[in-house]
Amino acid sequence: MAITRADVEKVARLARLRLSEDELTSLTNELSQIVTYVDQLAEVDTDAVEPMTHAIELHNVFADDVVRPSLPREQALANAPSHNDQAYLVPPVLGD
């Protein structure tokens, strides 16, 4: 499967990344190489292998439903570009 420049533009838009023309060219190249490598892996016969859905062998890891202290609000808001001491402030959100 070849990766086109249009694919990269679309993925960049979905990830809210603004890419220059040069970046688009080089990323199209790099992504194509990665996908080509995956295509190469896909040639291996895996009929007898269970699909793996996770890289870790662990399962059923749970925590008890017990409330612990949250962050003080000043700390939670500290990294926000804009806040009013109570809430994060963002530019008006389009029709919700």
Binding site: Q86, A87, Y88, L89, P92
Partner: peptide, 15 residues
Amino acid sequence: SIHDEVHGKADSQID
């Protein structure tokens, strides 16, 4: 999101 309905153009507050 809490939108400023009165002013419309003000920032939205996020809780």
